Simulated assay, not measured.
Amino acid sequence: MSLELHGIIPPLVSPFTADEEPDLAALRAEVRYHVDLGVHGLCVTGSTGDGQMLSLEDSVAIARTAVQEAAGRVPVIAGIIRDSTKEVVRYGREIAATGVDALQVTPVHYLFQPDEETTLRYYRRIADETGLPVVIYNVIPYALIPATTVARVLDEVPNVIGVKQSGGNIHQLADLLRLAPEGGKVFTAVDDLLYPSYLLGAQGAISATLTVVPELCLAQWDAVQRGDHAAALELHNKQLPVWRAIDGPNMTARIKTALALQGRNGGHSLSPLTPVSDAEREALRAALVAADVKLA
């Protein structure tokens, strides 16, 4: 199954109304915003989209809306964060009917971590039973899939086409890139080290910073592609304080505030996420101003 993924793939927020229903109009506006900027793909219902909190119905509605609005201009990936193979397949089959191009799937992580052979069977079954390409989402800090296992899954399971290496672990990313799996691409989600990730060989990024400041991230990706490392480093130094400001236990609430400061509608957050404090809001504002991001 052929699907070309590369470059800057922002993981979108899931906007909600005050009564915690998906705000699909706000989602459509975010899809248009990113596609018009020239991103290379979109991801919905991942961690930045509160995927772990979403019902099947909400996940399907969000995925369907993103696919409709993207209208084939870029690939759309839908995240699934569940804790059994049966549930991942149930979500995946329903989401597949929306027309998404691929699924992004975490390992199970509550309470126990499968061994290597079980992990291979897990991703093989998901790809086989959903009929969609799968991107491994290696994010769970206490259940990280070892680089050697990720490489095996990429090389041995045909429809597993990539991995989003997250968890703030540049060492895991480096180990994985050294192994150079031929069966899929490696994307970085080490937000404070996107530039070094590209230099190590990451074939793109799927990370929260891309959603907050996509123009900076696109410019950095382009700078790396043309070998302009002075520009790429300058952009790194602008992006880094933005990541520091959004990184925290209430990260998706912070991201939505960062969007609002730019005049974008990320919608309300879901309970029980901690609301953004005045101090956090001012830190976000200061980071965006320092990065030369236009505020509303």
Rank of each mutant, 00 (worst) to 15 (best):
F112N: 15
V150I: 15
A26Q: 07
P275A: 05
A208I: 12
A253H: 11
T85W: 06
V212Q: 08
A253E: 12
Y122V: 03
T119W: 06
L240H: 14
E182V: 13
E57N: 11
I126M: 02
K86I: 13
Y198K: 10
I255D: 10
G72Y: 08
D128R: 13
V293I: 14
H109Y: 15
P241M: 07
V105K: 04
A102M: 04
R121V: 06
Y110K: 10
V157H: 03
Q172V: 12
S269M: 13
G162A: 10
E87A: 13
D222K: 15
A279F: 07
V293Y: 06
R28T: 13
H34I: 07
A287G: 08
E117P: 01
A18N: 12
A66Q: 05
E87M: 12
L193A: 15
T252M: 13
R152C: 05
V153Q: 04
G204A: 01
Q262N: 08
V276E: 03
I8Q: 07
V60R: 04
I161T: 00
D115P: 02
I246R: 08
D292Y: 05
V67A: 00
Q225F: 03
L56P: 01
E280G: 08
R64L: 04
V212F: 08
G168T: 08
A208D: 10
S197V: 00
A287N: 09
F187N: 01
D292G: 05
I80H: 01
T17Y: 06
A260E: 13
L12C: 02
V108P: 11
L218N: 09
A296K: 14
E234S: 15
L132F: 00
L54Q: 07
